[in-house]
Simulated assay, not measured.
Amino acid sequence: MDSNGRKVVASNKKAHHDYHIEDTFEAGMVLQGTEVKSLRLGRASLVDGFVDIDNGEAWLHNVHIPEYAQGTWTNHAARRKRKLLLNRAEIDKIERKVSEKGHTVIPLQLYFVKGRAKIEIGLAKGKKSWDKRQSIASREADREKVVELGRRLKGMRD
């Protein structure tokens, strides 16, 4: 459980490295029973996932939720497309942005809130390789600042 009352199942760690996240949305998902049971075991992968808007509905593609081990013939397909539950204004906003060049919608985090499976999706724009190098350099500079500040507060000198 994190501070927001979320039980995080999976997160897309490479999303912030590969994309500039411009906006985020929380969406519900239409799931089958065995998918929920598999998620409660903490098993899912968001690596290749993306969101597509089709006929005014949001669909989640390529998110891997493995089959439930105790499931029988009612088990689900691991990489099936799943419908996302968003309101009309959110879907329209996403559809407008995706129609612009270079924008995409990716899953950022999959979690449970009050027993309901939710997914955080991000409206993103791909980073170039020099953007990635720049963000790594700024992260390392911030880390060095924190370390140096800690050394000075402890009274250590070079």
Rank of each mutant, 00 (worst) to 15 (best):
S3H: 11
G5E: 08
R6F: 15
K7N: 09
V8H: 10
V9N: 06
V9E: 09
A10M: 13
S11I: 09
N12Q: 09
N12W: 01
K13E: 10
K14W: 13
K14L: 05
A15C: 05
H16T: 06
D18N: 13
D18P: 07
D18R: 14
Y19F: 09
Y19V: 11
H20G: 02
I21P: 01
I21D: 01
I21E: 01
E22P: 00
D23F: 09
T24H: 04
T24K: 14
F25W: 04
A27I: 02
A27N: 03
G28V: 00
M29G: 01
V30I: 07
L31T: 05
Q32D: 12
Q32N: 13
Q32P: 01
G33C: 04
G33W: 07
T34C: 12
E35L: 14
V36D: 01
V36H: 05
K37C: 04
S38T: 15
L41I: 06
G42V: 06
R43F: 10
R43W: 04
R43I: 05
A44G: 06
A44F: 12
L46G: 02
L46E: 03
L46H: 03
L46N: 02
V47W: 07
V47R: 05
V47H: 14
D48K: 12
D48Q: 05
F50T: 02
D52I: 11
D54R: 15
D54S: 14
D54Y: 15
D54A: 13
N55R: 14
N55D: 13
G56T: 06
G56V: 11
E57A: 07
E57V: 07
E57C: 05
E57R: 15
A58D: 03
W59K: 14
L60D: 00
H61V: 06
H61K: 07
I65V: 09
I65C: 10
I65N: 02
P66L: 15
E67V: 07
Y68K: 04
A69I: 14
Q70P: 02
W73N: 10
T74N: 10
N75Q: 10
N75S: 14
N75A: 07
N75M: 10
H76R: 11
H76E: 03
H76Y: 10
A77I: 14
R79G: 08
K81G: 04
K81L: 07
L84Y: 00
L86R: 12
L86I: 03
R88V: 08
A89F: 08
E90N: 12
D92Y: 09
D92P: 04
D92V: 06
K93T: 06
I94V: 15
R96P: 03
R96T: 09
S99I: 15
S99H: 09
S99A: 10
E100F: 12
G102V: 05
H103I: 05
H103W: 13
H103E: 12
H103P: 00
I106W: 01
I106S: 03
L108Y: 00
Q109V: 03
Q109L: 12
V113W: 15
K114H: 03
R116W: 09
R116S: 00
A117F: 13
I119L: 08
I119C: 05
E120S: 01
E120W: 00
I121T: 01
I121H: 02
G122D: 02
L123D: 02
K125N: 14
W130R: 11
K132W: 12
R133E: 12
Q134T: 11
Q134C: 06
S135V: 13
I136E: 08
A137H: 08
S138V: 08
R139G: 03
R139N: 10
E140D: 11
E140Q: 07
E140S: 08
E140I: 04
